[in-house]
Amino acid sequence: MSSIKASDNTPAEREKLFMHLYKKAFPATARYVNKKGGSFEEARDIFQDALVIYYEKLTGSSFVLNVDESSYILGIAKHLWAKSFRQDIRYTPLDNYEFVEFVNEQPSTSMLLHHLETAGQKCMDMLKAFYYDKLPVATIARLFGYSTIHSATVQKYKCLEKVRETVKEKSLTYEDFIE
């Protein structure tokens, strides 16, 4: 299993995928990091971030893998390892990689994220399914218990509006609070 069909992208299927990739690709990354003088923990962190990037590639619409998946993941891991040295820090977490908006996470940002996770988790999970996991709307309707595609779509926009208003309101409040 080198990919995940969008309609099968459920937590259980993802667990199978990550288990498979761990067994297949982690030994090579661990050997590489070890050869470079890194620790087990560093190998683990680099590998896990490489898996996140690989997952995001898989869910992207135009991704076609031309090489063996383990070589591909090792390639990402080597890149992350090299990058962490260029920045003269042993290891940079993924939050600072490829995600400009969160380079310097403001206290207001983490407070807001925490708020969204606790107060609006159902909406966040649904929006994640649409925008991050990029599941087909029919799958989302099934997973979240909507009888039609239309009602799932309406709910998506309701959630987007609700979360947007929270982000707006809380961003302003937290900034006031911190400044």
Partner: peptide
């Protein structure tokens, strides 16, 4: 604001996927 919201969704998604990987 809607763009910023999608940035948060992306961040939330990554956090959840990392937790799933850590569980494996």
């Amino acid at each position: 604001w809607q763009k910023k919201t999608l940035d948060f969704v992306q961040h939330y998604g990554r956090k959840k996927i990392k937790a799933e990987i850590e569980s494996v």
